[in-house]
Design a protein around this nucleic acid. Sequence first.
DNA 1: CATTTTTGTTAATGTAAGGTTAAAAGGCAA
DNA 2: TTGCCTTTTAACCTTACATTAACAAAAATG
Lengths: 234, 234
Amino acid sequence: MEEQNKKILLVEDDPNFGTVLKDYLTMNDYDVVHAKNGMEGFEKFKKDDYDLCILDVMMPYKDGFTLAKEIREKNTDVPIVFLTAKAMKEDVLKGYKVGADDYLNKPFDSEVLLMKIKAIIQRKATETISDSKQFEFKIGSFDLNSKLRFLRHEGGDPVKLSPKENELLRLLALHENDLMPRELALTKIWRDDNYFTSRSMDVYIAKLRKYLKLDPKVEILNIHGEGFRLVVNA
Amino acid sequence: MEEQNKKILLVEDDPNFGTVLKDYLTMNDYDVVHAKNGMEGFEKFKKDDYDLCILDVMMPYKDGFTLAKEIREKNTDVPIVFLTAKAMKEDVLKGYKVGADDYLNKPFDSEVLLMKIKAIIQRKATETISDSKQFEFKIGSFDLNSKLRFLRHEGGDPVKLSPKENELLRLLALHENDLMPRELALTKIWRDDNYFTSRSMDVYIAKLRKYLKLDPKVEILNIHGEGFRLVVNA
DNA sequence: CATTTTTGTTAATGTAAGGTTAAAAGGCAA
DNA sequence: TTGCCTTTTAACCTTACATTAACAAAAATG
């Protein structure tokens, strides 16, 4: 199965340049959201999680530095890279002050850009390794570790889960005792909602039920036409 | 206790430029060792520990890239910055491949240089808090000394590890019982993530497993599509 | 009740990732 | 240069995974 693409927020007011850059990054397997100005950029930033922000410095209404400051208030970790037409010393210094990770002068070589992006995202990734709490779930007498992808029953031998099994069970656990809409799983895990992915999901539900049989209090119920519900009975 | 100045190795063959730069950095509280060519640079590097290496690319006898490669073999962590007269695309790419942390085009603004140096050293410092300084590991009934590159089982004869074996086992040990992402090892140790480096890594995993067989409680597990996990069972 | 739609389950298939060993290539020192 | 050690590449094999097909059973529909 394919790996999740890295998400980039690109804020650039020049429509030509912005579009070209977006296409180029998209071609290189990044998911790019393109905002045309600082305001829009901040709105989009709040709505999603990004692996990298590329901000043009010179923009009407709200310049890149101001935007960067706002972003930093919401998120101290996301890497920020500035784009600027010319290497003004003050700008560069100001950029680093706001917490920039790098600086690119237009015009720049696209391969160099790619290399830098890769390096920056990678760097952050290794720094951020220890946020493991959100990967552990208790499901009845089971423990699910969705980072290491195993399910353990009462301290016994852990069963390895495949990526899809793991993601699906994790989604169910996140909605424990509540409805997990079929459509949600399909768009989140399969990223496509059609007859075949839907059947595929049913196959995985069956697999999970088999694993969970060890604890009769735990079951996955179907809500016809709606989705599934992971329930843990008292 | 007062703080120790950061040590910089400057390798630059132009005597004028080199001296000016050295003086400037010294004025700004760095301890600078100035080598006049690649050979000398490598000698000085071996004799001491540095917080940063600044290497000119164009040098007689031994260019900056070659020197960087030698340095990387001795030390995978020390930050390296290249100096170059003009931004040749191939050079830049080559630099990043050898593990460069940044790139400076001559002539450059001295304040910008200082800012970058500070940022790079700082970055390494925070990265290094968790992993670097650690060279001795207890892995089940094994002792790994990754500075001297040997692995000993219960005080028996130590086995010499090759550089790659050593780095890989050290990375695994740093993440003991946790996931060590495949991609992390490839970018950290091989500095490139492609089919061949990935297969090469698998070969090394096999070698390590052979060494570790002496203690059945110690195993390297694979998490399909994610990476490896060094586990020590109770 | 007959029919359609949705879900349950198992098995078969194709592909990708990883395991293992050996040979080739590269580096380095004697 | 030779010889030794390390690393990469290749070959072949096994396992893991996701999808699809096939058929059975529920549930909805009218």
